[in-house]
Design a binder for these strands. Sequence first.
RNA 1: GCUUCGGUGGCGGAAUUGGUAGACGCGCUGGAUUCAAAAUCCAGUUCUUUCGAGAGUGUGGGUUCGAUUCCCACCCGAAGUACCA
Length: 937
Amino acid sequence: MTYNFKQIEKKWQKFWSENQTFKVENDSSLPKYYIMDMFPYPSGAGLHVGHPLGYIASDIYSRYKRLKGFNVLHPQGYDSFGLPAEQYAIQTGRHPKKTTEENISRYREQLDRLGLSFDWSREIRTSDKSYYKWTQWMFIKLYNSWYDNKIDSARDIDELISVFKIEGNKNIDASQSEELKVFSSDEWNSYDLEKQNSILLNYRLAFLSEIDVNWCPKLGTVLANDEIIDGLSERGGHEVVRKKMTQWSIRISAYSQRLLDGLNDIDWPDPLKEMQKNWIGRSDGAMVSFDIENFNKQIEVFTTRVDTIFGVTFMTLAPEHPYVKHITTTENLETVNDYIKKSSKKTERERMSDVKSISGVFTGAYAIHPLSNEKLPIWISDYVLAGYGTGAVMAVPCGDQRDYNFAKFFDIQIRNIFLDKDISNEAYQSKDDFVLTNSSFLDGLNFKDGLSLAINKLKSVNKGVHKINYKLRDAVFSRQRYWGEPFPVFYKNGSPQMINEKYLPIELPDVNKYLPTEDGKPPIGNSEVWAWDTKQNKVVKNSLIDDKTVFRMELNTMPGWAGSSWYFNRYMDPNNKNAFASKESLDYWKEVDLYIGGSEHATGHLLYSRFWQYFLYDLGLVPVKNYAKKLINQGMILGNSAYIKREVGSDNYFSKNIDKNVKTQLIHVDVQFINIYDELDIEKLRNWQPQFKNANFETIDNKFLVYRDVEKMSKSKFNVINPDDICDDYGADTLRLYEMFLGPIEQAKPWNTAGITGTHSFLKKYWNLFHKSGNFEVNNNQPSKESLKTLHKTIKKIEDDMKNFSFNTSISAFMICVNELNALKCNNFHILKSLTILLSPFAPHICEEIWSKMGNKSSISFEPFPIFNPDFVKESSFEYPVSFNGKMKFKINFDVNADVESIKKDLIKDDRLEKFLNQREIKKIIVVSGKIINIVC
RNA sequence: GCUUCGGUGGCGGAAUUGGUAGACGCGCUGGAUUCAAAAUCCAGUUCUUUCGAGAGUGUGGGUUCGAUUCCCACCCGAAGUACCA
């Protein structure tokens, strides 16, 4: 009987599905374990072998945890709102809902073939109204909350309003869009509703504001910072420009410090934590205010180097700085306006690529140094970013290279405040190893002392305060797209109103076209039914809008990260109609114990979701602050692309190693036409695309060799390997083993189909252990010492590897085990039963088959994991770890029953120790229960 | 530029707190089986070699009885980030 993987895998996939083997309950006496994958966006291209890497790893761990006696929650769902379905809809007119459904069923088919143990009864889709109902509900919660810096928590906006009523805002320390004037309770109570609303918007965690956004004209939408790469849109690579628009934003900046501190409490990969740290970008410094000559306001400046305050010789403002138009003198007005015009025309990309050229203009105005009262010329320049700090800097040319370059270029004074440091060629930027000079009362101090004295002095004259600044910006939450969650918002007198949560979900309306409307409104503007009737409390036709009882609704939709920021909580109780999840289910599952997904979401989803969970926690809606204890970033599986060389502008193609003296280019060809020797099947290529039909192919020895390169697996590079094909040829168990065997899970690694025969033949060998003479045959004798040793060595190894998620070395251990049992001609029932349980997380189908053949009725999935017994392993001679003077340790062979004297003799015989022991004398050997614990010299 | 991670055979990769480097797999070589092939099994496979041995984990140095592992400097690669004041 041969290993018929096709039949076996089909049989057991059917069995698991019919018996709902992996359905999990919310109450159990067993300890819980929650293991989750990042849910996929179901794209039209289907899965390639790179996608399942994380799913296989999480599945192995889930199955392992079940064997270890945990109640394991292992769900899967779809992040099904998104741009590709919408763009497909624009091209074809097909409803994104339809294509999304088709894509999902294709994904499901492919996932099922891998034998993954998901509890599909808990499947969620972010585009389901039963799901986005709660996304909308949480948005309303965000809108109705403010952030109290005093207790570091979000609070209900009603609490803020009642404070305003009683004592105004003088004692409030909140995160807000901009500093407001202090108002009293009387003033508050005298404001009309509109005014009160606009003040409250300044505090709300979901707020509407006119902001500079990244506008992508080609996509017709705004983009978040993390959706822009090198100044171009992440999707499509289109131009992005700055534009002022009224947008919903989420006040994630309020949580900057907590998001930073929280990194210490979670076991996430260091590189990822580092990325989040940089993204949050905390810098500790001071806010200093400079008076302006002939202008009744101060320029606020953020600096991390107040110690260099006496090195300031000029000020620089960003061209967008609000004071520029007020302070510019008449004779400079024209050049300044020209400069502002020029820099606003520059796209973000141009401004970034133009780092090296220095530009700027003098405003004609002067600031007053807060400590020396010196006059400082005020310049504007686009090297100062409007979006960071206050959009103004105090320029210290001797201590900052950019200021230095600017001063040199425009011949502005450079004052050296660093004693005996040479600044004739560049600024002295180090914070170490200097003493201040030319700095009045700071003379003779170093960085640290200078810093604190300068801040104290500024404080005492009311010109500066200690301040911590963050790079993290509030997140834009509006998208001018169709295929996303609609906002539960309508507008009354221009101010936003939340629809009562009783009437959620607000369903996405149907539209006849998915492009923006002709007057530039978002696609939902195409719907004729998109107005809110406050009497009937439902969505009605636009034609009924009267701004008395029927109002216009928000046309934007929410961004992709809205639905993905809280989905892990929904899996706990996915069908709940009364809450996003019941309190009982949240209290039972608490948080994800192991989260597996790619690191490309480091500063997107993985930051937003942490924020979102903190917010829910603040409101008492979830029991834990951090939603994922441990995170593993699986590495990408890279494709092995193939190229052929073509003479430019002709139909002539040359094999690799043929050098013609003509201009050539490399063209991607489908890797399916290439054999393992890099030879191209020319006939297949001719039939592939018309351009190759009648082309000339010049070969070497009748072989046409291609060029190869490792790069990201993608349909457009024709290097995609479909897991279905591998399952057809070798089976899912082989694919699972092979993907894990390729290397450590976190590492990127190229796919190479050639090596797959190794894991496949391992499974065949395992199968043959039970089929000595063609038939299934195991003996029920007492296992031999050798086979027990092999088994328990393997148990130990697997347990150790599971702790480190080192699946590749586990598989090596299985291979060794099977080879050893094979050499021992072992077909002992007890040994093979244990081995089958051990192996079942990795290769579940074949193990289920063997398991049932061994006479077991139920699935292997919930068997107890075999227990390691060291006695079987340390039979006869065993390597013991030994330490000398409690320090050096290494393993050494000695007889368990030997006395101390003969151990000494053994030690001296060991050539590793010869040198060491020749130099000292053994005073004492400490032996505890047959083990050398320490040797004292 | 800065930050982080990494560099081990022909290849993917192993190597508990420093203790016999190269596990396991691929590939390759030889052999068995076969009319032959596939499949399977066995043996070998870091390099050099005068067959005794010598060298060897990016390079150079250091600590140590002992370093792939720890420390310093440099070289190379990958990822992230970038006028962040």
